[in-house]
């Protein structure tokens, strides 16, 4: 089933990757902060801003449950979007693939998996970033509200540059429709 979502995510669309998201999400963290809204079960849109004001972005998101029945399972997230760098105003495209496995219960959720929020531009020469992160979400659900903490770490590969290290953390609130 295809759903439509709208989100304030970031250059790396984080909010839409929160486990079991089926409504609205706000995410604050580093290097990103934002929010997301899902209108349908597994498809949406997301817009976002890096908190260093480096870029803004709009993404469409698709989520598929690969395995699992009920709370336990494995989800594949795919997002495609466009953004603009705010320092040197250049447009760029983004693609995110993320694989999340874990438990998404009524009162608690914990997932972990790899995510690769890639961005690339052809303006002023070809440039790209290829982050490879391992990220985890964990937190309780109280009624319609779910509180999630996110942690992620990994490396960012960028052609022509030495790899850089990425450590990310954030908090989010999601509200079920």
């Amino acid at each position: 089933m295809i759903a439509l979502a709208m989100a304030l995510a970031f250059a790396d669309p984080v909010a839409h990757r929160e486990p079991g998201l089926d409504g609205y999400a706000v995410h604050i963290g580093t290097p990103e902060a934002g929010a997301a809204v899902w209108f349908l079960d597994d498809f949406g849109l997301a817009v976002g801003l890096r908190n260093d004001l480096g870029a803004v972005e709009l993404s469409a998101v698709e989520r598929r449950q690969l395995t699992g029945e009920g709370a336990w399972g494995l989800d594949l997230h795919g997002a495609f979007g466009a953004g603009i760098g705010l320092v040197r105003p250049w447009p760029y495209l983004t693609t995110t693939l993320a694989l999340h496995g874990g438990f998404r219960g009524d009162k608690f959720a914990w997932t972990i998996g790899p995510a690769a929020p890639i961005a690339y531009t052809f303006v002023g020469g070809w440039r790209a970033r290829f982050p490879l992160l391992v990220e985890t979400f964990i937190g309780p659900r109280i009624g319609k509200v779910r509180l999630m903490a996110r942690g992620a770490a990994g490396t960012v590969l960028s052609p022509g540059l030495a790899p850089s290290f990425a450590a990310q953390a954030g908090l989010s609130v999601t509200i079920r429709r």
């Binding site: 250059a11 953004g83 320092v87 690339y120 440039r127 970033r129």
Partner: peptide, 10 residues
């Protein structure tokens, strides 16, 4: 100066 680094970073 500010530079645009790795596509999205400042």
């Amino acid at each position: 100066f500010m530079a645009q680094a790795r596509v999205t970073e400042r």
